[in-house]
Simulated scan of single mutants.
Amino acid sequence: MEDNFTVALCQMKVVEDKTKNIEHALSLISEAASVADLVILPEMWNCPYQTTLFPKYAEKKENSQTLSAISGAAKKENIHIVAGSIPELYHGNIYNSSFIINPQGKILDVHRKVHLFDIDVPGEISFKESETLTAGNQITVVDTPLCRIGICICYDIRFSELSRLMALEGAQLIIVPGAFNLTTGPAHWKPLIQVRAIDNQVFMAANSPARDINASYVAYGHSMVADPWGNILKEAGTGEEIIYANIDLDLIPKIRQELPLLKNRRTDLYQIIGKE
């Protein structure tokens, strides 16, 4: 396991043409790979973030144009890739799914979004993922040569139990492909990333699509990386860009020794029990 490595968050523009999105992602991955050991794509990067379109764009893992291209890029560039999230057809249902791929091009695991984004803020935004998506049911923590990585997707970050369970399972870096909007983003995006890092004393890397004011769903942007003390190491703006951050794993035991939050939990009074 590395003590020190670099992550790249590709805050990319998303268009309606899946093939163009894939080609664009490959270009960004190639650029980022010259610097980074791990490249992260945003939520729903190969299609517009629109519930009615998810069935049209959905792919099976075994026969996926998108995953085949990203696996090839991981192998070519000799890097790990968290392929943001894409609509996945699995056992007759459609999921919002994030695949982590190693430098050999192998899929290590998949996180299927556990908490579906069904909200209604009167006069602001109404969105219902459950119209076309099914919720996943696993906590996703993956061993890699870089570190132990947890993955959650967008709305998942709002549920503290999920990130705490990932931390208890040894996650050192939690990756969040997410597409907060112009209502929830300014209010909650940065505070949630910081408080999840602080609560669990882990690194957080949250990656959004670039903002497109002409899209049916307008993403907030502001992809960012936080350290285990809650410091923001890097933050993007609203447009397309790649940001890079150094992950120094030695910070985790240092901060946990200075401020032993996980050790000081009162498990005689309360416990979080994950699904076996």
Rank of each mutant, 00 (worst) to 15 (best):
Y155N: 06
E129C: 01
I153M: 02
I149L: 02
S126P: 06
P145H: 14
D143C: 12
A135D: 01
G123S: 00
S160R: 04
R158A: 13
D156P: 10
I139C: 09
E131V: 01
F117M: 07
I119M: 04
T144N: 09
V141Y: 00
D143F: 13
P122K: 01
F159K: 13
L146T: 01
T140N: 11
L133H: 09
L133K: 06
H115C: 14
F127E: 06
Q138I: 15
D118S: 01
S130I: 07
L165G: 05
G136S: 04
I157R: 10
E161V: 07
P145D: 11
Y155M: 08
T144F: 14
I119Q: 02
I151C: 02
I139Y: 06
I157T: 12
P122M: 01
L162S: 03
T132Q: 10
E131H: 08
V141L: 09
L162Y: 04
S163P: 09
H115K: 15
E129F: 01
G136H: 05
K128E: 10
H115T: 08
G123M: 03
A135S: 06
D118E: 02
E129D: 05
P122W: 02
I157E: 13
L165M: 02
G150Q: 00
R164Y: 08
D120S: 02
S126Y: 05
L133P: 08
C152N: 06
N137G: 01
G136M: 07
G123W: 10
T134C: 12
I149K: 07
I153E: 06
E129A: 00
N137E: 13
C152F: 04
I153H: 05
N137A: 06
S163D: 15
P145Q: 13
S126L: 04
C154A: 07
V121C: 09
I153L: 05
N137Q: 08
E129N: 00
S163A: 15
E124Y: 14
L162C: 04
P122S: 05
F117A: 06
E161A: 09
I125F: 11
P145M: 15
C152E: 03
I125D: 10
T134L: 14
L165P: 00
I149Y: 03
F159R: 10
S163I: 11
L116Q: 12
Q138T: 15
T144A: 14
V141D: 11
E161D: 13
I157C: 15
E161R: 04
I149E: 03
Q138S: 14
L162A: 04
I157P: 09
Q138F: 13
T134D: 12
G150M: 01
I149A: 04
Y155S: 05
L165W: 00
L133F: 10
L116F: 12
I149Q: 01
R148N: 08
P122T: 08
I125Q: 11
T132M: 14
A135Q: 06
N137R: 05
D120V: 00
G136C: 06
F127I: 01
D120N: 00
R158E: 07
G136N: 05
F117K: 12
I153S: 04
T132E: 15
I139D: 14
T134P: 13
D156N: 07
F117V: 09
R148S: 09
F159V: 09
I119L: 02
D156V: 14
F159T: 11
R148H: 10
T144P: 12
I149N: 04
